[in-house]
Simulated scan of single mutants.
Amino acid sequence: MGQAKTRGTQDQRIAQAKAKVDALRPAKMVCGACKTSFTDFGLIDARGMPGIHAAFGGVCPSCGETVLAFSGDKDAVANAMIAWQDAMGAEGKLGMQSRDGSHKFFEN
């Protein structure tokens, strides 16, 4: 614990970690199914997901689809999406989104 003490108290380290994740939070998410944008979504626990810095998810208010956003290393994000598709047993509708909410859909 010696190195952790040099980064501040436990409360300070928690606040720093929260600030890092908050900085990665997108302004809005866009549904890959119906293209609706929405702001009511939450943080997904990404501990144990190497290379993922933050993950967010919510349910589209228009069509009810699950919408996910991963931030992290390129390969880690790709692996997380593949794992999610495998777990859900369905093909995802992929896109790329900036933190300000601008979105680009990848069409098949």
Rank of each mutant, 00 (worst) to 15 (best):
P61H: 13
R47L: 10
A15V: 05
T36V: 12
S71Y: 02
K20Q: 11
V59K: 02
R25V: 03
E65P: 05
G48L: 08
P50L: 11
K18T: 12
A15S: 10
D86W: 10
S102G: 14
A80D: 00
I14R: 07
N108E: 15
W84Y: 12
G32A: 10
C60H: 01
F70S: 00
G101S: 05
L43R: 04
A78Q: 03
T9Q: 07
A83H: 06
D40P: 05
H103V: 06
F56Y: 08
I14D: 07
A27D: 10
K5H: 15
L94D: 10
V59C: 05
A87S: 15
K18M: 12
I14C: 04
K20S: 10
V77S: 01
M88V: 14
K20Y: 12
T9S: 12
Q10W: 08
V67E: 00
K20M: 12
R7S: 06
G57E: 03
W84T: 06
Q16Y: 13
D100E: 15
C31K: 01
E107Q: 14
G42H: 10
Q3P: 02
A15I: 08
K18F: 08
A83Q: 06
S102I: 12
L94P: 07
H103N: 10
K18L: 13
A27T: 09
S37K: 02
G58L: 05
Q3I: 09
E107M: 12
E107N: 14
A4S: 06
G42Q: 13
L68K: 01
G64R: 07
V30T: 06
K74D: 09
K93N: 11
Q85N: 13
F38V: 04
T36N: 09
G2T: 09
G92E: 03
N79R: 08
A80S: 06
Q16D: 15
I44W: 01
T36K: 08
K5R: 15
K5P: 02
I82K: 10
S71T: 10
T36G: 04
E65V: 14
L94N: 11
V30C: 03
F105N: 11
C63S: 14
M81E: 04
V67Y: 00
C34S: 14
G51R: 01
F105A: 14
D75W: 13
A55C: 07
C34V: 14
S102A: 13
C31Y: 01
G2N: 10
A33Q: 11
F38S: 01
K28Y: 04
F106E: 09
E65S: 15
A33T: 12
G51S: 05
A55H: 00
T39P: 04
F38D: 02
A4H: 05
R13Q: 08
V77K: 01
A17M: 13
